[in-house]
Design a protein around this nucleic acid. Sequence first.
DNA 1: ATGAAAGCGCTAACAT
DNA 2: ATGTTAGCGCTTTCAT
Lengths: 348, 348
Amino acid sequence: MTSIDDLAREVGVSTATVSRALRGLPRVSAATRSRVEEAAVRLGYVPSASASGLATGRTRTVAVVVPFVTRWFFGTVVHGAEQVLRERGYDLLLYNLAGDPAARHRVFGTGLLTKRADAVLVLGLTPTPDEVLLLHRGGRPVGLVGASVEGWPSVRIDDRAAARSAVQHLLDLGHRRIGYVGGLGESPVDSAVPTSRRDGYRATLADAGLEADPALEVDGMFTMTGGLAAGRHLLASPSRPTAVFAASDEMAIGVLRAAREAGLAVPGDLSVIGIDDHEAAPFFDLSTVRQQVDEQGRTAARQVLARLGEAPADGPAEVPTEVVLPTELVLRATTAPPARRRTPQRSE
Amino acid sequence: MTSIDDLAREVGVSTATVSRALRGLPRVSAATRSRVEEAAVRLGYVPSASASGLATGRTRTVAVVVPFVTRWFFGTVVHGAEQVLRERGYDLLLYNLAGDPAARHRVFGTGLLTKRADAVLVLGLTPTPDEVLLLHRGGRPVGLVGASVEGWPSVRIDDRAAARSAVQHLLDLGHRRIGYVGGLGESPVDSAVPTSRRDGYRATLADAGLEADPALEVDGMFTMTGGLAAGRHLLASPSRPTAVFAASDEMAIGVLRAAREAGLAVPGDLSVIGIDDHEAAPFFDLSTVRQQVDEQGRTAARQVLARLGEAPADGPAEVPTEVVLPTELVLRATTAPPARRRTPQRSE
DNA sequence: ATGAAAGCGCTAACAT
DNA sequence: ATGTTAGCGCTTTCAT
């Protein structure tokens, strides 16, 4: 491994000059700079990240904490963030919590993150007050996706509004008995997203003069499998809903499957709508509320980079602290007006 | 940020003792050790990765290079790898190439990787000879998933065999006109996987005495969308196949969609089978060849860790250099015998 | 069992 | 424009 000393010796200058030359700092003659650059390539010199990190206190690395890399949404956010980070020469340290509380504690509960990275991006997780304190003490910028903390940069969608547009669409079609599959908010610690979407659902029903029916709200754990279980549950009920709003497309796909199992036609017997516009959504003809997932990662990365004093290369010159990205109702073929009312209770 | 000096001062010992105590090295009295540990927690001390990296030459980080984080397969492999890395206290540096050749060059073409990480994991990519050389010069262990290089640890499945089992299944059902959707091997640089699967397809047909028809092989780019396009192409042909083998489930899902568009019943008019057992496969009733994706990541991580001299915590005591994981035919509802032969050419 | 001190490879004043 | 030098925060002999 060639070090800066080897390189300096090779070129016949001091290490300080090599350092300046390679980092594009001023006060280096053009001639010297090119000689240094040439030699660097020739010797395959790459500065040691540890050494420069130690000397500068910056690692040119950002830590990204994600609940599950395997979920499409988070994978896509990571992808977006990685793109802009790399443009600016930052590396990405990935912390995948994967539902392990111990992992969460090790990641947030120690200075680890802030010690290894110049900034941290937290996806789909609302830090607890303790965690906020710890992160704050780290003194590094923290960016949030799908959550927000006073004073910290964040990117998200308006989850209540997104839920509302989905539910309103079902109402507009004439549905009155609308099920909800999503997170039920038992673990407020994880993220406000499930709760907000459920609140949006409830509020929209309430505005339409419909009363909430607890039997219509089922947890789907934000996975296809969870959605399937939730769908089975909902559809097994004698007073099953004519439509289901799932808080994510993955859960909606599960519900679709449950409908098929139950021999129900979609959208004839059951309408289904999700949120995300997941990559697979068009393949299921799934109606949904689209969000810009990749862009959430890109924006979050820009936010922390800006706080790191990095001039934006391409993006907008200024990145607001709290960004709320728009969503869009995408109608495909899983939603339609309800079939003519068969009300088992009162004989028509 | 409390440093080792602060901690040493606080406890009243030297930094050397603190270092030993915290890393569990011998020659520290139990009493001292616990005092150090207590103070470390109290002061929130976390060693600087840069400093210890500089001092030891090891960063306790492994770099993972992946073609696309957003693809289910790679996300899942990363997840698996991350699990075992974290168990051993290693961090994961993610390099997502995302189809950008410039990114590939920066990642492989400089000493970057080997300078920042103790080991590197390359997923779904066959390094070019140049890249092999460069990586080799780095002197760090390199683990491969879905590829292999003489002497380097690798994990993969037998792609030819996997393809063969899928195609043989279609043959056994009575299909004779079987399409292929996959990679066509134009970019051997990326990975041998697409080529091997296609070869398995061709060989199986040949063994059955069927001659290959180039019109039956279409590139699906390993995405749902690519699979859709490929499927449309295949099904538009007057002499369309009665079955399609897709080299990945995602492409198979695309083909399923194309069939629906074309008004073809699956499996009545068209059988479809993929490879992976993707999370969404059961939701499409997709027949497939299952592979253990998570386990590929775990195994690859164990392999490089072993070469780093890390004693395995849980896994098998020895990790072979070349691991070939088994696959398994999973029959669901997208494959069935072909409909009675309608041969447009000769009137029956 | 513990401490002193050198050194890992860089950067950042401060000189010149 | 370039060189000297003092750290950055750890680990690791080598002493004691």
